[in-house]
Amino acid sequence: MTTAAALRPELRDPLARRRLALAITALVVLWPLLRLSDFRPATLFDPVNLHVMATFVAGFLPPSTTPEFLGFLLTATLQTLAMATAGMALAFVVALPLALVATRSLSIAAVGPADGRWRGRVLRQAVRVGMVLLRSVPEVVWALMFVRALGLGPAAGVLALAITYGGMLAKVYAEILESADARPARALLAAGSGRVGALCFGLLPLAAQELVSYTVYRWECAVRAAVVMGFVGAGGLGQLLDQSLKMLSGGEVSSIALVFLALVFLADAISLVLRKVLA
């Protein structure tokens, strides 16, 4: 094959060399990173380690079902769900105006282009930088700060989620909106419509499904983040898991893990139903 291509230079794929170079570069970059992260999968299968893991996992069975613990579990689950949902709702409120400004296809000044386009470009860049700042600090770090300020409990987690997820939602909303066909929105802007009108009647009908499934997926991530923030004192399932782990009660840990599983299934089902409704 290679020799045939060498014989007939006009048949040689002009992109082949670049692709090969990219693949080699990726490997060269990846290898030191794996070494740096101490990634040695062989140690997982070391007999001693396998035995330790087996005892650890065996301790998880059977899942704890004492009524008292189930009561705690229910309260903690509701608290985590509330934290995630309230955090997402606030994040949505933060993200919506940012995405509206950051989406290039909704720029009125780009039609023409009119004189305001430089101002628009500067504003859009400023908003993008703002979005980066919001999401650059992990939510658990924010949570640690807010726990100091507001005391232990889910309120700290809600604020932490609102900030980081606000930035994330805004970025991805803007990118989803920009990857939709811009012509309907441009036509509306060219007929004098404002941004919000062009969004509602031009872009949303094209992008609604993707926006909704991303939002539900982010809600699912927010549930997991709410669990992690529980470890730093934001309450909910995370705090419960922290206690159970510290008390070495594996049965409780596995009950909590089953709740995680159920929550992810729930998010998946919600996403599926909403996509069907919007199809």
């Binding site: 066909d181 012509r183 309907p184 441009r186 036509a187 509306l188 007929a191 004098g192 419509s193 404002g194 919000v196 009108g197 062009a198 009647f201 031009g202 872009l203 009908p205 094209l206 609604a208 919007l278």
Partner: peptide, 22 residues
């Protein structure tokens, strides 16, 4: 320039977005 998922009624009403307020 009409998104396929829009209903006909909305597609027509969008003609006056420039005259309507937010």
């Amino acid at each position: 320039p009409i998104p396929p998922r829009l209903r006909v009624v909305s597609a027509v009403l969008a003609g006056r977005l420039g005259q309507w307020g937010l």
